[in-house]
């Protein structure tokens, strides 16, 4: 708290940090959850094996997204990338029948 001459402590900076935290938590979990569901339906393995594999890697995926969100140059760029990734995964999941009602499986 003793650092001075730093624009980092201003409200804009704080808001950007808060934005990254929200994006990391919600975006990271959304991407991990969508990828887990998509891989569970599409991996060319026995069904239970596809689910187990996808679930196992999900935590690494979320960590990667969180690290990216905090490493990205700007919050806007990070938000765009995460939203794009989630949209692609969501589209894939829709095509794979992930959003259809029970019975498809």
């Amino acid at each position: 708290m003793t650092q001075q001459k730093d624009a980092r402590r201003g409200p804009a900076y704080r808001l950007a940090v808060a934005g990254r935290i929200v994006l990391a938590v919600l975006g990271g979990y959304a991407v991990a959850a969508l990828l887990t569901a998509l891989l569970s339906l599409t991996l060319p393995l026995v069904r239970s094996e596809a689910v187990a594999s996808a679930t196992l890697v999900s935590f690494a995926v979320m960590v990667a997204v969180v690290v990216y969100v905090f490493a990205a140059r700007t919050l806007g760029r990070a938000a765009l990338a995460v939203a794009g990734l989630a949209a692609v995964l969501g589209g894939g999941l829709w095509l794979a029948g992930g959003f259809s009602a029970a019975g498809a499986a």
Binding site: A33, L34, T36, A37, S40, R47, T55, L93, G103, A104
Partner: peptide, 17 residues
Amino acid sequence: VTLAPMYMPWGVAAAYK
């Protein structure tokens, strides 16, 4: 991973509806 079925249930939910 120990509590994965609770933290990340979406794979099971999607494949086993």
